[in-house]
Amino acid sequence: MGERFERHKQAWTSEEVQKLHTLAKKGMALRAIARALTRSEESVKARARADGLSIAALR
């Protein structure tokens, strides 16, 4: 199956948020961003939605 992340309910650091914004603006897919940040796809999606970012769909 998929990878399991051991970080549960960890607060987002300002560095992670900045990286999320950068990767989202570059047009990276949700799964790729989640792996780059070592966070779950759900966590990345929720944070992006809270910050008003749009994440590219898989191509």
Rank of each mutant, 00 (worst) to 15 (best):
Glu16Pro: 04
Thr13Asn: 03
Thr13Leu: 09
Arg39Lys: 12
Ser14Gln: 10
Ser54Trp: 10
Glu16His: 03
Gln18Phe: 07
Gly2Cys: 06
Ala46Cys: 01
Ala32Phe: 02
Arg35Cys: 04
Thr13Gly: 07
Glu42Gly: 10
His21Thr: 12
His8Lys: 12
His21Pro: 00
Ala32Lys: 13
Phe5Ala: 02
Lys45His: 05
Leu23Phe: 11
Ala56Asp: 07
Ala56Trp: 04
Ala29Phe: 11
Arg49Trp: 04
Ala11Glu: 05
Arg35Pro: 00
Glu3Gln: 07
Met1Pro: 10
Gly27Thr: 12
Gly27Lys: 12
Gln18Asp: 14
Ser14Tyr: 02
Leu23Asn: 05
Ile55Cys: 10
Glu41Trp: 00
Lys19Phe: 01
Arg4Tyr: 06
Arg7Gln: 11
His8Val: 12
Leu23Asp: 08
Ala57Trp: 07
Ala56Gly: 02
Glu41Met: 13
Ala57Phe: 08
Leu30Glu: 12
Arg49Cys: 02
Gly2Arg: 14
Arg59Asp: 15
Ala36Phe: 05
Trp12Phe: 04
Lys26Gln: 15
Ala29Pro: 05
Ala34Asp: 08
His21Phe: 07
Lys19Tyr: 01
Leu20Ala: 06
Phe5Arg: 09
Arg4Leu: 10
Ala48Ser: 11
Ser40Gly: 15
Gln10Lys: 05
Glu41Lys: 14
Glu41Val: 05
Val44Thr: 03
Arg39Pro: 03
Met1Val: 09
Thr22Val: 13
Arg35His: 12
Ser40Lys: 09
His8Cys: 01
Glu15Arg: 09
Ala24Gly: 14
Arg47Asn: 01
Leu20Met: 07
Ser40Pro: 01
Phe5Met: 05
Leu53Glu: 13
Gln18Pro: 00
Met1Ser: 14
Arg7Tyr: 06
Glu3Lys: 10
Trp12Lys: 04
Gln18Trp: 07
Phe5Trp: 02
Asp51Ser: 10
Arg59Ser: 15
Glu42Asn: 10
Arg49Ile: 06
Gly52Pro: 13
Arg49Glu: 15
Ser40Thr: 15
Arg39Thr: 04
Ser54Phe: 08
Thr22Ser: 14
Met28Pro: 00
His8Leu: 10
Glu42Leu: 08
Ala34His: 09
Lys26Cys: 01
Arg47Ala: 02
His21Leu: 12
Met1Gln: 10
Lys45Arg: 15
Gly27Asp: 12
Arg49Asn: 10
Leu37Cys: 04
Arg39Val: 04
Ala56Val: 11
Ser40His: 05
Arg7Ala: 12
Glu6Thr: 13
Ala24Pro: 14
Ser43Tyr: 00
Leu30Phe: 08
